[in-house]
């Protein structure tokens, strides 16, 4: 048996229950979870406001994990018991989430965790890093000569995007609130306050009026519209939250491109999972060479205080990614 956090229905409080410990099927490994990263999507799923995540109640939430391989199923050659791993492994698509002592995980989704990062730091990385990588690298094909604007640079995805862009040698600008200025600067971006100035003036000031080669939007809505305005001719906008209705005209006269990033698809469909494992190996490579770290709120939540963590995310109280410590083993 093991502990798992269960939410019975939309809006209900979570509770810790005892359930059967999963048995890894062919291609899966059993991970003993040390830490589970909290993502804003978790709060939307438990509110019943994320149909696209296809995670029907009762649910065990938690998309990201870091932990230790306990044993491996058939046909798994890459991992052995005792390996420290991390990944974006469930909590959507009806797959058990990571707010539990164990998860049976498709081995293609995992990578070895960064050597110099803790379990808590590692658990803050997968979804955010994969989203940022798919946008900047897979879609927009970032290069050193690009100037990059990250809209929402102090968020989970945003601070990953800044670090990835910096690792490619790009010049990076990031919008954030004034109190997060040091955060985006610490990761190597030039700070742009999105409350006190208009983006138009900043685009003019930082790019001689021509616009940014690449704009990564972590916020959607009006910020995506502003991103379409801020991109240069033949430039590329990517968004992690492009669900709305938007005027495409600003892209049209600039012959620009726009990509939606929907990182859940491999979990929902089973297709393309090895690509997620591959991206996380890039994250490990960057972290091991000191070019990637996770900004984690020092407050340590447990399986019993998950509701509080979700409340912090909803209210915007967090300073960095929130991580639930599952096991201190």
């Amino acid at each position: 048996m093991m502990r798992a956090v269960v939410v019975e229905s939309a809006g209900a409080p979570s509770k810790v229950v005892e359930i059967e410990k999963p048995i890894p099927a062919r291609g899966e490994v059993l991970v003993r979870i040390a830490a589970s990263g909290v993502n804003p999507l978790d709060t939307k799923i438990r509110a019943g406001a994320a149909a696209h995540a296809r995670h029907p109640f009762p649910v065990t939430l938690g998309i990201d994990l870091a932990g230790t391989v306990e044993h491996v199923g058939e046909h798994v050659t890459e991992f052995s018991p005792g390996d420290e791993v991390y990944g974006m492994t469930g909590g959507v698509g009806g797959i058990q989430g990571t707010l539990a002592d164990y998860a049976a995980v498709d081995a293609r989704l995992l990578a070895r965790k960064p050597r110099h990062l803790s379990m808590r730091e590692s658990a803050a990385i997968p979804l955010a890093f994969i989203t940022a990588w798919e946008g900047l690298v897979d879609r927009a094909r970032i290069r050193a000569e690009h100037t990059v604007l990250v809209q929402g640079g102090a968020g989970g995805v945003g601070h990953m995007a800044i670090q990835i862009a910096r690792s490619f040698g790009s010049r990076v600008y990031a919008t954030a609130s004034a109190r997060k200025r040091q955060v985006v600067e610490q990761f190597g971006a030039t700070f742009i306050d999105y409350t006190s100035t208009t983006l138009k003036e900043d685009v003019a000031r930082h790019t001689n009026g021509v616009g940014f080669d690449l704009v990564f939007d972590c916020r959607g809505g009006a910020v995506l519209d502003a991103s379409f305005e801020a991109v240069t001719r033949f430039g590329h906008v990517v968004s992690a939250l492009g669900w709305g209705t938007h005027s495409l005209a600003p892209l049209s006269f600039k012959a620009a491109s726009y990509s939606g990033i929907f990182t859940l698809y491999p979990l929902l469909s089973g297709e393309g999972r090895e690509h997620h494992g591959r991206i996380l190996r890039e994250a490990t490579r960057l972290a091991d060479s000191g070019r990637l770290t996770a900004w984690v709120d020092p407050h340590e939540f447990t399986l019993e205080t998950v509701d509080e963590a979700h409340e912090w995310v909803s209210q915007g109280f967090a300073s960095g990614k929130l991580v639930v410590s599952v096991c201190v083993c």
Binding site: S239, G242, F253, S257, S259
Partner: peptide, 12 residues
């Protein structure tokens, strides 16, 4: 478009 993670380019 977002749910299928598509890219859209304008040519001019």
């Amino acid at each position: 478009m977002h749910g299928k993670a598509l890219s859209l380019s304008a040519v001019f």
